[in-house]
C-alpha cells in the first residue's frame, strides 16, 4: 500500500497515470450495458420463439417494429428530460391532445395534406411542451408537480376538444391513415421516421453545443452556472423538444390505430420512462445514450408483444412493467455506486 503511494505521488507534478485496476462487475455492466441488453433481447426472442413459433414471423416482427417506433420516438425526448434530472408525466396527455386535434382537423377538412396534419400535431405538442418548459425553467416549479398538473389539463382539453366523442377510422381520409401504414422503399414510414429521429437526435446531443449543454446541466447544475450556461434555457428547450416529439407521436398514433379518443395513450408515459431507465438513462442526471434507449424500447416492445403470445394474461402487463422500471432503476443506482467506489479505490489510500 505505502509503496504505491510513493510511486504515484513521488513523480513530479501530477504525472499520475491512471493504472488499470481490476474492473469490478458494476463497471463492466456500465460499459457493456448495450451488449447485455442486446444479448437479453436475443435470448428472450429465442425463448419466446420456442414456445410460440409464430413469434419470429415477418408480420409479427414488423408489428413489433412499428409499435416500438412510437415508443422510442418518445423515449428520445424523455431521455433528454431525465438527463436534466427532470421527469415528464404529461406526455401521454400531450400525445392525446395533439393526436385528437389533428384527427379533428383531417375529419373536418379531408383534403388536407398529410404533412400538414403532421405539422399541426407537432405544433400543438410544441406549445404544450413550451408551457411546461416555462413552468419548470422560469417559474421554478418541480418537474413532477408541473407535469402532473398539466397532464390533467391536457387530458381534460382532449375530452373538451372532442366533446367526449371518438374520431374513428371512417372519418379519416386514407391519405392520413397512410402516414403510419405507408411504406417507402419497402420500409414502413413509422420506422423511417423513428430512425430519422435517432440520427438527428444523435447528432444533436453529441455534436452540437446545445446538446452537450443538456448533459452539462444534468451532470452538475452549479458548475453549469459558473461556466455561463443558461440552465433555464436548456430546461425550456428540453421540455419543448419533448412536447414536439409527443405531438408527432400523437399524429402517428392516431394514424396507426385509426382512431382518436379521449383516453388515448393514457399511462403511456410510464412505458416511455421504463424504456429510458432500461436503456441506462440515470435518474440522477447527466447520463444517457441513444443506443441505450433504442434497445430499451425494443426490449419493452418485444415484451409487450411476446407476453400475450406465451399466454401471459394481459392483466400481468402492468405489474411486469412496474417491476421492470423498479429493477432497472435499482440496477442503475447500484452500478453507479460501484463505479464511484472504483474511482475511490484508485486513490489507493
Amino acid at each position: 500500500m505505502k509503496r504505491q503511494i510513493t510511486e504515484s505521488a513521488g513523480v513530479p507534478g501530477a504525472q499520475i497515470n491512471i493504472g488499470k485496476p481490476a474492473r469490478s462487475v458494476s463497471e463492466m455492466i456500465g460499459k457493456f450495458r448495450e451488449l447485455g441488453l442486446l444479448g437479453f433481447i436475443l435470448l428472450l426472442s429465442v425463448g419466446v420463439q420456442l414456445r410460440n413459433p409464430s413469434f419470429l414471423t415477418w408480420e409479427n416482427i414488423s408489428d413489433i417494429a412499428t409499435n416500438t417506433a412510437i415508443l422510442s420516438i418518445l423515449a428520445v425526448g424523455m431521455m433528454l428530460v431525465i438527463i436534466t434530472r427532470g421527469i415528464d408525466l404529461s406526455i401521454g396527455a400531450t400525445l392525446a391532445v395533439s393526436g385528437m386535434i389533428s384527427a379533428l382537423l383531417v375529419s373536418h377538412y379531408p383534403g388536407i395534406h398529410p404533412l400538414l396534419a403532421i405539422a399541426s400535431g407537432i405544433g400543438i405538442g410544441l406549445i404544450c411542451g413550451m408551457v411546461i418548459g416555462c413552468l419548470v425553467a422560469w417559474v421554478n416549479i418541480l418537474p413532477i408537480i408541473a407535469t402532473l398538473g398539466m397532464m390533467n389539463v391536457y387530458r381534460g382539453l382532449t375530452f373538451e376538444a372532442s366533446g367526449g366523442k371518438w374520431v374513428s377510422a371512417h372519418q379519416m381520409p386514407t391519405g392520413f391513415k397512410a402516414i403510419a401504414t405507408g411504406t417507402l422503399f419497402g420500409v414502413n414510414n413509422l420506422i423511417l421516421i423513428a430512425v430519422a429521429i435517432y440520427i438527428v437526435a444523435y447528432y444533436f446531443i453529441s455534436h452540437t453545443r446545445s446538446g452537450r449543454r443538456i448533459y452539462a446541466v444534468g451532470s452538475n447544475p452549479d458548475s453549469a452556472t459558473i461556466s455561463g450556461i443558461r440552465s433555464g434555457r436548456v430546461l425550456w428547450l428540453v421540455y419543448t423538444i419533448m412536447g414536439g416529439l409527443s405531438g408527432l407521436a400523437g399524429v402517428l398514433w392516431v394514424s396507426k390505430f385509426a382512431s382518436a379518443q379521449g383516453d388515448t395513450a393514457s399511462g403511456y408515459e410510464l412505458s416511455v420512462i421504463a424504456a429510458c431507465v432500461l436503456g441506462g438513462v440515470s435518474i440522477a442526471g447527466g447520463v444517457g445514450k441513444i443506443s441505450g434507449i433504442v434497445l430499451g424500447s425494443v426490449l419493452l416492445g418485444i415484451l409487450n408483444n411476446a407476453l400475450p403470445m406465451i399466454d401471459v394474461s394481459p392483466f400481468w402487463q402492468m405489474f411486469i412493467q412496474g417491476t421492470i422500471i423498479l429493477i432497472a432503476v435499482l440496477i442503475n443506482a447500484l452500478v453507479k455506486r460501484g463505479i464511484d467506489r472504483n474511482h475511490l479505490m484508485r486513490r489507493k489510500i
Partner: peptide, 24 residues
C-alpha cells in the same frame, strides 16, 4: 462535470465548432 470527458470539461462553454454546420 463528473460524467463528461476531460476534453468536454476543458471546452465547456466555448466548444470548437465548424462555422457553417455548428458541428462540434
Amino acid at each position: 462535470y463528473p460524467d463528461l470527458s476531460v476534453t468536454e470539461n476543458i471546452f465547456m462553454g466555448h466548444e470548437k465548432i465548424r462555422r457553417r454546420t455548428r458541428c462540434i
